[in-house]
């Protein structure tokens, strides 16, 4: 299981990477490589050139401001997992990141790589869609909802690359989050996953409720919800297309999505009450 031959080159700047990508449509970016390497080894992708962006200054930084949390594409998942600032500013991402693969893959895997790969079961993409994040690229910025088009397919224009992921920051005092997923084994691709952020107003009323579903659907989906009830979630799930594979059919995924959404919501509610 060895890759087909390619040329390995290191980009020193985003501009340089962008030029190389524009010059060669068969070139691929490697960030952490945790998904690209198996695809190379199985010869499912056969790039002419592999452009390493790990050496680009600044791409591995996390910037937290009053309104925004911005991750460079090369921020390792483990950095997110260990970041006190992320835990404080984006508790939902901090929870979800622990479900991404296994500890060794999180040490190499990156935020940008996960986003660009667009696996339907990816937790980072699910949180991005749930919280209304913006995918930063060398072309335009995309709202996460518009970026993921289909399994392993994004709106990224040819020749462009993902440079980061930017989340709006909620500073409300009364916020609860929840994350739940089911996989064949812990750490496997989720058959269904749910992420929830619940914000209460000063009077205890629901100021904002976001529940996103991943794993079950071809791309992560932010549910359109009027109220935090099982009926409302079920109704929001009803029109969604569910995936199926030898492990789990669409019916299971739909039921699991509902159950997990309820779990995530329950966790968020308990947290906000605490």
């Amino acid at each position: 299981m060895k890759p087909a031959p390619f040329e390995y080159i290191r980009a020193e700047s985003v501009l340089q990477a962008q030029e190389w990508l524009a010059a060669d449509p068969e070139a691929r970016v490697i960030a952490g490589g945790q998904t690209l390497m198996p695809m190379l080894a199985m010869r499912l992708v056969r790039p002419t050139r592999v452009i390493d962006i790990a050496g680009i200054a600044g791409l591995d930084e996390i910037a937290v401001t009053a309104e925004l949390v911005t991750f460079g594409a090369m921020v390792r998942q483990v950095t997110v997992e260990r970041s006190a600032a992320v835990a404080q500013a984006l508790p939902l991402l901090a929870k979800a990141i622990r479900y991404v693969g296994h500890p060794p893959t999180r040490r190499r895997g990156t935020i940008g790589g996960s986003v660009a790969n667009a696996d339907p079961a990816a937790e980072i993409a699910l949180v991005a869609v749930t919280l209304g994040a913006e995918v930063l690229t060398t072309a335009d910025g995309f709202s996460a909802r518009d970026f993921f088009l289909a399994p392993m397919t994004t709106a990224l224009p040819a020749g462009a690359m993902v440079t980061g992921l930017r989340f709006p920051r909620v500073t409300a005092a009364r916020r609860g989050t929840g994350f739940a997923e089911v996989a064949m084994r812990q750490g496997d691709y989720a058959m269904a996953a749910a992420a929830c952020e619940l914000v209460l107003g000063a009077g205890g009323e629901v100021a904002s409720l976001r529940i996103g579903i991943g794993g079950a659907t071809p791309v992560p989906v932010l549910l359109d919800l009027a109220e935090p009830t099982r009926e409302a979630i079920a109704a929001a799930l009803a029109p969604l297309e569910m995936m199926h594979d030898p492990n789990a059919g669409a019916g299971y995924r739909r039921r699991a999505a509902l159950a997990l959404a309820m779990q995530a919501l329950d966790e968020a509610q308990r947290e906000v009450m605490a």
Partner: peptide, 10 residues
């Protein structure tokens, strides 16, 4: 880390 998931060059 997994050494099969890295190029030697990385």
């Amino acid at each position: 880390v997994r050494s099969c998931l890295m190029l030697a060059a990385q």
